[in-house]
Amino acid sequence: MVKLNINGKVHQVDVEPDMPLLWVLRDILKMTGTKYGCGVAQCGACTVHVNGEAMRSCSVPASVLEGKKITTIEGLAATKLHKVQQAWIDHEVPQCGYCQSGMIMAAVNLLEKKPKPTDADIDAAMSNICRCGTYVRVRAAIHAAAKA
């Protein structure tokens, strides 16, 4: 059994030691907001926070995360939208939206570390792939959230 603290709630899951967190979230716990994009930590669609660090859940076994605080897109804002989510709405960032859970989780983590990020900071932190090409708006929305 693996004991996971996800969005402030403890879940006990009976999974293999090497099952990545992504599949525990999606297929065991039915939390499908975190997306599968590549399975090899390339695209960032599966980004979650582990103890305040952005992490690609497709490439982290759930078993090594016991005792750590995991936050997913579902837990980002329990009652009120996070300022990043609000900026995303204000700037109409998502198109197909599939990569945006990961994009938002990466942006939130960036702002936690650098409340006033420069364009270079954004370039370094936001390596997520978006095929619809929302990058221009992602950048604008991060700057807007930094001011909010």
């Binding site: 297929d27 897109i73 109409e92 998502p94 939206g97």
Partner: peptide, 27 residues
């Protein structure tokens, strides 16, 4: 005008084909 589909796409609530979850579903 604001797109209808955006709010659910910033909270993870949007259900795509890949997110379909049904009772007793196999993968």
């Amino acid at each position: 005008q604001k797109r209808f589909d955006i709010p659910d796409k910033v909270t993870g609530k949007q259900v795509y084909g890949i997110d379909v979850t049904l009772p007793n579903m196999l993968h």
